[in-house]
Amino acid sequence: MTLDFSVVTDAWYSLLMGVLGTLFLAASGMVIAMVVGVLGVVVLRAQMRIPSLLINAFVEIIRNTPFLVQIFFIFFALPLAGIRLNPTMTAVIALGLNGGAYAIEIIRGGVESVPQGQTEAGLALGLHKGEVFRLIVLTPALRAIYPSLTSQFILLTLTTAICTSISAYELTSVGQRIEAETFRSFEVYFTLTGIYLVISLMTMWLLAAIGRWAFSYPQR
């Protein structure tokens, strides 16, 4: 067997566009996941019975079913409800909901680790409940759980590869097209492996830098 990586280098522009597609899916999914995670915890802390049951049911369903099944369900179920989205937007929604379920559990654990006395102190100082949650509860909780969220978001970035199953435009779908045209499976998937590794390391570095900037204590 003779290796020929020219099929990969010749398709560098397509691979670059695939990388951008993957980064778009990952970034969009992360944003939605954070919004879902924070709102979910707010609802749970409000201790409203029916909404809390719905949030807990959502978390259990997402955590105990494969992502592939979830994205297929959204892709084929939404049109039955009269909602038609392209594969890319369907992938973004699926990634956001999947990441959001895990974010709810991570953020809830961080919030529950904040001593109740801090909340009571904030209320005693005359702060509004929303201000107490945002400034005294959520911010310290996010600082504590940020490494866990970072790991979850890196996993979410790699999960974008599954979105090729509904023809969403991302790196794996580009690789599959190149492989189908050239029949050079080893060269294509060896290259994709390296690219995903670089994406993961860069994402890890970027999120770590954001964490140092956003959650560092003031220097005295």
Rank of each mutant, 00 (worst) to 15 (best):
K129G: 05
I154D: 00
E131L: 05
L97A: 02
E120Y: 11
P115Q: 10
A121M: 06
A161T: 14
I166Q: 04
T150Q: 15
I178P: 01
A91R: 10
E181G: 02
I195Y: 02
M89W: 15
I107C: 01
L142D: 04
S185F: 14
I107K: 03
F186C: 07
Y189W: 15
A144C: 01
L95N: 02
G99K: 01
T139H: 15
G126M: 09
G126A: 09
G110E: 04
G175S: 06
I166G: 00
A121F: 03
Y189F: 15
Q176C: 01
A144G: 01
A180S: 14
G96N: 12
T182A: 09
E112Y: 05
L135K: 12
I107D: 07
E170N: 05
F133C: 03
T172N: 12
I178V: 08
L138E: 05
A94M: 07
E105T: 05
E179C: 04
L125W: 06
G96K: 14
L95Q: 04
R134E: 14
E179I: 00
L155P: 01
Q176T: 10
I145T: 04
T193L: 15
G99H: 03
G110F: 11
T157D: 03
E131H: 08
L149E: 07
S151F: 03
R177K: 12
G175C: 09
A161R: 10
L127K: 08
S165T: 11
E181Y: 07
F133K: 07
F133I: 06
T159E: 09
V111F: 02
I106T: 09
A180I: 03
F153E: 06
G100S: 07
K129L: 06
A144Y: 08
A161S: 15
R184F: 03
L135A: 07
Y102I: 03
T160I: 09
A180T: 10
S113M: 12
I145A: 00
L125M: 13
K129S: 13
G99I: 01
V111I: 13
S113W: 07
A121K: 10
L192G: 02
Q116W: 10
I195R: 02
G194R: 13
I195A: 00
Y169T: 08
G96W: 14
L156Y: 07
T119W: 15
G126E: 11
E170R: 04
E120L: 09
V188T: 11
A94T: 08
G100F: 15
G130P: 09
S113D: 14
G175T: 06
V111T: 00
L127F: 15
T159F: 05
L125T: 08
A180M: 13
F183R: 09
I136F: 01
L192E: 11
I195G: 00
A144F: 14
S113T: 12
Q118F: 12
E105C: 02
P115A: 14
V174L: 13
T119H: 11
G109S: 08
T193R: 12
Q152F: 06
L156N: 08
E131D: 14
I178D: 02
Q152K: 11
S113N: 12
V132Y: 05
S167T: 13
L158W: 10
T182I: 10
G122Q: 06
R108M: 11
F183W: 14
G99R: 04
R177N: 10
C163N: 15
A91M: 07
I154T: 06
G175F: 11
L97G: 02
L155Y: 11
L149I: 06
L123N: 01
Q152T: 04
